[in-house]
Simulated scan of single mutants.
Amino acid sequence: MSARFWRQRTKALPSISVLVMSMLLTGCFGNDEDWHGKNISGLMPELEFDLMNSQGEPVSGSDYDGRVRMLFFGFTSCPDVCPTALQKLNQVTSSLAPELQDEVLTLFVSVDPQRDTPERLANYVDFFGDNIVGLTGTEPQLRELAKRYRTTFGYDEPGPDGNYAVSHSSAIYVFDRDGSARLLIRPGLKAEEIRHDLVALIQEDS
């Protein structure tokens, strides 16, 4: 497995959950032959949060019920992992049949609330397509959400210019229409493989 899965730039996440790491390394999540992503059904809690969207409005997980959702933690100043992942997800959703495109939603959660204002977050997610929502919150809210999905994030010391790097996981969590956690997408998965899984989830709930 590529070390970049748990790295932002070259910095590892020393406090990342040992449980999740061991599961990913050993394949303990299981991987049904029908799925390209890791099958996490029954191993992660349902989609639930109370955050703020890129319009500055409070939102909860239930506000986006009825669609297959992909949850991804990141930040707008991310130099590589975030734009690469969001470009791939936009490629995937754009390649779906027109009648299926609105059935999938990407939830991009910024873990850098100090810099990622609603306006900045809105400009960022708009660049990556229509079916993506920018979310953020207070650091305690974000810590609670990250813990819920057995991951974490961290901040480097600011440089002379005040800028700093943010360490975070590159995992993408996929939830079905009912909000149940179903799949974990890793960076190495091809766009067509992700597309296959999304179409399968859409069709099983149709």
Rank of each mutant, 00 (worst) to 15 (best):
D126V: 02
L107W: 07
L121I: 04
N123A: 14
Q101K: 14
L96W: 09
F127L: 12
S95H: 13
E119F: 14
Q101C: 04
V109S: 03
F127D: 08
A97F: 05
S110K: 06
A122I: 06
F108L: 05
V92L: 00
E103K: 15
V111K: 07
S110Y: 06
D116A: 01
Y124R: 03
P98S: 10
Q114R: 13
L96N: 00
R115N: 13
V109A: 01
L100Q: 15
V109W: 08
S95P: 04
R120G: 07
Q114M: 12
Q101I: 07
E103G: 06
A97K: 15
E99D: 13
P98G: 08
T93F: 04
E99F: 05
D116L: 08
F127Q: 12
L121K: 05
T117K: 11
E119L: 15
T117P: 09
L105I: 08
S110C: 02
V109M: 01
S95M: 03
F108T: 03
L121H: 06
V111C: 13
D126N: 15
L105P: 03
V109R: 08
R120V: 14
V109P: 03
S110W: 06
N123M: 11
L107D: 10
D112Q: 07
L105R: 13
L121P: 00
Q114C: 04
L96I: 04
L105C: 00
D112E: 12
V111F: 12
S110Q: 00
E103N: 11
D112F: 06
R120T: 12
P113K: 09
L100F: 10
P98F: 00
P118S: 05
T106A: 14
L121T: 02
V104Q: 05
P113L: 10
E99W: 01
V125Q: 08
A122S: 15
P98T: 06
P98V: 04
E119C: 00
Q114K: 14
T93Q: 14
D116F: 10
E119A: 12
R115H: 10
N123T: 10
E119T: 11
R115P: 02
Q101A: 08
E99V: 09
P113N: 09
E119Q: 14
D126H: 15
P98W: 00
T117M: 08
L105D: 06
F108A: 03
V111H: 12
P113F: 08
P98N: 03
V109L: 02
L100N: 15
F108Y: 11
F127P: 00
D102Q: 11
V92C: 01
T106P: 04
A122V: 08
L105H: 00
F108I: 03
E99K: 14
Y124C: 03
D116Y: 01
T93R: 15
E99Y: 06
E119K: 14
D126E: 15
A122M: 14
F127W: 15
T106K: 13
D112A: 06
L100M: 15
R115C: 01
D126L: 11
F108E: 11
V125M: 07
P113T: 07
T106F: 11
